[in-house]
Simulated scan of single mutants.
Amino acid sequence: MRLNVRHVDGTFEGRDEQEWPLARTRWTRFHLDAASGSLSTTGPAGEHSVDFPALGPGADFWTEPLTEVLKITGPASARVRLTSTTTDADLFVTLRVQDPDGNEVSLVSAIDEHGVLAVGWLRASHRELDHGRSLPHQPWHPHTRTLPLTPSRPVDLDVEIWPTSLVVPPGYRLGVTLSGSDFQMPGDGPWPVAYGIEQRGNGVFVHDDPHYRPAGIFDGVTTVHTGPASGTSILLPVIPAQE
């Protein structure tokens, strides 16, 4: 199996491997803290929450500047506890990177030349898991029935995040954005356009059809809960830095 491991400057290095995920992966959980907007391997001390309009930009969580290189290669997942003011909600989980000056790092992806580190999404009413097939880094959803939300009652969503790779240097920050709509790469562009859609991280595959996201259900307010009891976090495939 041949991998192309990416670097923040747009280069990559080829690597031959024997298995997937890599056997030497150190599965590392990064916890979200709504009180500080932080992302850390140390869990928050208390329970907190943050609200955002479901069709707005969402909520951001960032690590402190890294003190050593962070190598990520493999699949990932997120566990998010949320509530909604309506009977359903879409959740988009976007992994991001910023350079020491706060500039967004964009990466060439399979669908967009200005892609993010990785992304995953799930409709809350399809949160049911097949526990026999699910893995910590790869939740499995049968999508055989819908489970509507009770407004203001929290539920847990396990979200699969697409496999990715990146070597993140010291001084950079790792981030995650939780939102109810497609993430858009920040900046003024100009952005390439295909089929009338600006290429800002999602290619042409955007989720904006009102038939599938009707008003009154998907335009409410989403609340994300964090803390020891909530368990809101992302699980990342960290590779030993000494390689």
Rank of each mutant, 00 (worst) to 15 (best):
T94K: 00
D88K: 11
E113R: 10
H114Y: 03
H126C: 08
L135N: 03
W121V: 01
L117V: 01
L135M: 11
L149A: 05
R127S: 12
Q138I: 00
D156K: 08
H126D: 12
P136W: 13
P100Q: 05
A118I: 03
R123G: 02
L147D: 12
E128W: 02
E128G: 03
T83R: 15
V108R: 09
A118P: 01
V97K: 07
G115T: 00
G120N: 01
P148D: 05
A118R: 02
H131V: 14
E113H: 10
S125I: 03
S125P: 05
T85R: 10
Q98V: 15
P148I: 04
D112E: 09
V105Q: 01
T87R: 14
W121S: 07
T150F: 00
H131K: 13
E160F: 15
V93Y: 10
P100Y: 10
S152C: 09
L95E: 10
T86E: 15
T83W: 02
V93G: 11
H114F: 08
T94M: 06
R96T: 15
D158K: 05
G132Q: 14
G120E: 03
T150A: 13
T83M: 15
T87L: 06
V119L: 08
F92K: 03
S125W: 01
V97L: 07
L117D: 02
P151F: 10
L122R: 06
E160K: 12
R153W: 04
P100N: 08
H141Q: 14
R153S: 09
V116S: 05
E128I: 11
V97T: 14
S125M: 08
L149F: 02
P139S: 05
V119I: 07
T144D: 14
P142N: 02
Q138S: 13
D88S: 09
V116L: 01
T144S: 10
P136Y: 06
D156W: 04
A118W: 01
G120L: 10
V119D: 00
T144F: 07
P154V: 05
R123V: 12
L135K: 14
F92H: 11
N103I: 00
G102A: 09
Q138C: 04
D101M: 10
